[in-house]
Design a protein around this nucleic acid. Structure first.
Length: 827
DNA sequence: GTCAGGATGATCTAGACAGCATGTC
DNA sequence: CTAGATCATCCTGAC
């Protein structure tokens, strides 16, 4: 089937595809077309990675657009959204417009409505539905990429529910779902009332094998010797990477992708393999790599950045979530450009953007899992996804995926478990409390259901219902969740004649729209109420707003306390307990004495850190004592009642949150990034992640504080705390850091040079500004312009030396808690 | 006295979505 | 409490 013979596409598209090199549709693509893809039929395509799934999606969307409709493309990761946008934009010459909507990158809402194709993450789509984005109603085609992720415990249910909602809103909606090859594609197709294309076909051959005893046994029966024992390739991985580099096509050796099970392993393996890749570099490559390393170093002065730079110089790299998104993108691009010869990665890369390699090496096939209680073998699906990264279209005659085994016995096990095995079936994870908590609330708040029965009727459209023998379990979890939501006043029961109806309260609507886990919202509300809505921190002493003794204790309705599950996270008592005394029974004494607890940044950071929407920091050895100590010292700042120290698990969580809060506080007091990374033993990417999450949650907290009528001073405290994490500065720099192009470092330099505000920037002596900015004229001009200065030009201005000196001295203004380790600190 | 190298014990463990306001493909 | 790799530390034995 040739692309030009397809009907129903915008004119010229067929020819354009042909020009791209699509002479003939791949068999699965042709099968999809025969199943009515171009006529709006539903379709599930379960095919291997890189076998033309994207074209299937494109054909569906283009034909929908040709019929006058619009399409939505749902991706699992933000990084994939931009990748897909770039891909789809090649159809702009046919008048097809593309827009993206994700959490951190949003095209204007109205503008989006004019796009033909919108790319969004599943959470964003869910959020858009909750917030009533009008264009959702007008969609004619939805494509869901990587739909096997409904199997994911934490994020799968959202995709499942979102698809159910989209299909409910618009009965005629064409649904196209793309999946990896899974055990039960038929079931997914049945759920979506779709035709099924289930195929193992690939455009590039993939050979999968197991390496043991110096040779790879491939699934096609062939065997390749790759001896081990010749330093510096004296381990399996190194030997295989070396071997791949020896197979030269068009002048360059084959690249490898190594999957390992921890960040530490990724970094140490990269160091090890750098010795191998280094020997395969040419002079020109060496220079380019040096430039890349330099870019990494200038981007983030952390240990992680430094060790990444070091291995990059040798043509290797590691890749995991501790890297910033910049660092990751840089590594991915350089690998695609064939400059980096080998990446050692955690599973970030298996599900992420497209980074094919000549050879994939699955070094570790077990990973620690706390719930499982030990090292758990990876799912076959996961390993298949990794292996699917082997084979670069147009470069490799075939891809090779190699699993590593210690001996013949293990080799056999790996063949059975992964090489010959089919991927596991996808199972809905919807019937779990955390998932239902948020989706039940949203379902009612957005009017998809208004009674208990209505809820079940809606949930019958999910994959869970398709798979479950009966819905008793789902019903019982749902009932429990409804109780929880009612007890926390997110939902209320109404008598409507004889029937009992469910409706979202005003707060419930807010929580749904904020996209918060209701449990996070409950935690935030309880914490804020327990604080008594005191004025802002000692900064200005205006505590007048709570002078009337207003205390925001929770309601004392005894019914609410009947069930531990229902009242989880609520604060008992009347808020008149002793002065911040710790309560040993978990009740009472939440609020402090007469002055009320101020909302300090640390208190707020701790509050947001203990919500389920914040990923927990791990307590390492020694942390338990360290943060117990911190807890005693700063107990008065923390909001709400601490769990008793005897409740070990909950108390540990409390300390872990305190650790996160301290990290955020460090960030908000201008502690250097590398210092933070070292102190908490995290990567720069983790710091950014924590800061982003805190920013988001504090914004939500601000809205909730208004909703529950806390005094304006409390709202202001929250906003200031939020801005301080957002910019990473102390209070006095908030205004400066709000100026575009002024970050935490420049703000501090300007401040030390005597410039403290936007007005100062407009009025200040230019020589001072230039001096503070270390003589960078372009930067200084841009900043002055952004601050609204009439005459930003720096022509003929010479930097003021004393300002430069002050700025430099001020750059080290961080608190030092290590004390003796820093004798040079004269402050 | 020193140092290589083995035995023992301690330590640690993947990932990443959302809001909102601006400026950017 | 579960597992396994890695790393720090201590110990041994050879010189």
């Amino acid at each position: 089937m040739e692309p030009t013979s397809l009907s129903g596409l915008p004119s010229g598209v067929g020819e354009a595809l042909e020009a791209e090199g699509v002479a003939e549709l791949y068999p699965p693509q042709a099968e999809a077309v025969e199943a009515g893809l171009l006529e709006g039929e539903n379709l599930v395509a379960a095919v291997p990675t890189a076998s033309g799934k994207t074209l299937i999606a494109e054909l569906a969307m283009l034909s929908a657009i040709e019929r006058g409709g619009t399409a939505l493309y749902i991706v699992p990761l933000r990084a994939l959204a931009s990748e897909k946008r770039a891909e789809f934009e090649r159809f702009e010459e046919f008048g097809v417009t593309v827009g993206v909507s994700t959490g951190n990158y949003e095209s204007d809402g109205e503008w989006l409505a004019t796009r033909d194709v919108i790319v969004a993450t599943s959470e964003k789509v869910d959020s858009l539905i909750r917030n009533g984005a009008p264009w959702i109603d007008d969609l004619s085609c939805v494509v869901s990429d990587e739909i096997h992720l409904v199997n994911d415990r934490s994020r799968g249910p959202t995709l499942e529910v979102t698809l159910a909602k989209l299909r409910r809103i618009n009965e005629g909606l064409q649904t196209v779902a793309l999946s990896a090859t899974v055990g039960n594609a038929r079931e997914i197709a049945d759920w979506l009332d779709a035709a099924l294309v289930d195929s193992d076909w690939r455009p590039i051959d993939l050979r999968v094998g197991v390496h043991a005893n110096g040779a790879i046994d491939f699934d096609d029966g062939s065997r390749t010797d790759v001896p081990v024992g010749d330093p510096p390739t004296d381990d399996q991985t190194a030997a295989l990477v070396d071997d791949a580099l020896d197979t030269v096509e068009d002048g360059r050796g084959g690249s490898s992708l190594v999957f390992v099970n921890s960040r530490r392993n990724a970094e140490s393996a990269a160091r090890n393999l750098a010795r191998v890749t280094r020997r395969h570099l040419e002079e020109a490559e060496r220079e380019e790599l040096d430039a890349l390393a330099e870019e990494i170093r200038s981007g983030s002065e952390t240990d992680t950045g430094e060790s990444l730079a070091e291995v990059i110089e040798a043509g290797a790299a590691f890749h995991h979530a501790g890297l910033t998104s910049d660092q990751r993108a840089l590594v991915e691009d350089a690998f695609r450009d064939r400059l980096i010869k080998c990446i050692c990665a955690t599973p970030t890369l298996a599900a992420g953007v497209n980074t094919p390699a000549r050879r994939v090496i699955v070094r570790d096939w077990r990973r620690y899992d706390g719930e499982f209680g030990g090292m758990k073998p990876l799912d076959a699906l996961e390993v298949h996804q990794m292996c699917g990264r082997a084979g670069r279209p147009g470069l490799d005659p075939y891809g090779e995926a190699v699993l590593l085994a210690n001996d013949a016995e293990q080799s056999e096990e790996l063949f059975d478990r992964y090489v010959w095995a089919d991927a596991e079936p996808v199972r809905s994870k919807l019937a779990a409390e955390p998932a239902l908590r948020t989706h039940v609330l949203a379902t009612i708040a957005t009017g998809f259901a208004s009674t208990r029965e209505g809820l079940f009727e809606f949930l019958a459209n999910t994959l869970y219902a398709e798979q479950a023998d009966d819905d008793r379990h789902l019903r019982s979890v749902t009932d429990g969740v409804v109780e929880y939501l009612v007890a926390n006043e997110f939902l209320e029961r109404e008598r409507d004649g004889g029937r009992e109806a469910l409706a979202a309260t005003s707060i419930g609507h807010t929580v749904s729209r904020l996209y918060l886990d209701p449990m996070s919202a409950a935690e935030l509300i309880d914490g804020l109420r327990a604080a008594g809505g005191g004025g802002s921190a000692a900064s200005d002493g205006t505590d007048t707003l709570d002078a009337d003794g207003v205390r925001y204790a929770p309601s004392e309705d005894p019914d609410e306390q009947a069930d531990g599950f229902v009242t989880y996270g609520r604060v008992d008592g009347d808020g008149k307990g002793g002065d911040g005394e710790r309560s040993d029974d978990g009740a009472a004494a939440a609020a402090a004495g007469d002055a009320g607890i101020d909302l300090t940044p640390l208190g707020l950071y701790h509050l947001v850190s203990r919500t389920p929407d914040m990923y927990e920091l791990y307590l390492k050895s020694g942390d338990e004592e360290r943060y117990t100590q911190t807890y005693y010292e700063r107990e008065a700042e923390l909001l709400g009642a601490a769990p008793s120290e005897h409740e070990e698990v909950r108390f540990e969580d409390w300390l872990a949150s305190l650790k996160t809060a301290r990290l955020l506080e460090d960030w908000a007091t201008e502690v250097d990034e590398d210092r933070i990374a070292e102190r908490y033993q995290v990567g720069p990417g983790d710091v950014r992640g924590k800061v982003d999450a805190a920013e988001w949650l504090l914004r939500a907290a601000e809205t909730l504080a208004r909703e529950i009528d806390l005094p304006e001073a409390a709202v202001t405290s929250i906003r200031d705390a939020r801005k301080r994490v957002e910019y990473g500065v102390r209070e006095e720099l908030l205004e400066l850091a709000g100026v575009r192009e002024v970050g935490r470092k420049r703000a501090r330099r300007l401040y030390e040079a005597g410039i403290a505000s936007r007005d100062d920037l407009r009025e200040a002596d230019k020589a001072t500004v230039l001096g503070a900015l270390r003589g960078r004229e372009r930067t200084a001009e841009t900043i002055l312009e952004n601050a609204g200065r009439e005459d930003p030009s720096m022509d003929d201005v010479r930097p003021d030396a004393s300002a430069a000196a002050a700025a430099t001295a001020g750059a080290g203004t961080e608190e030092d808690e290590d004390g003796q380790s820093n004798l040079g600190d004269f402050r």
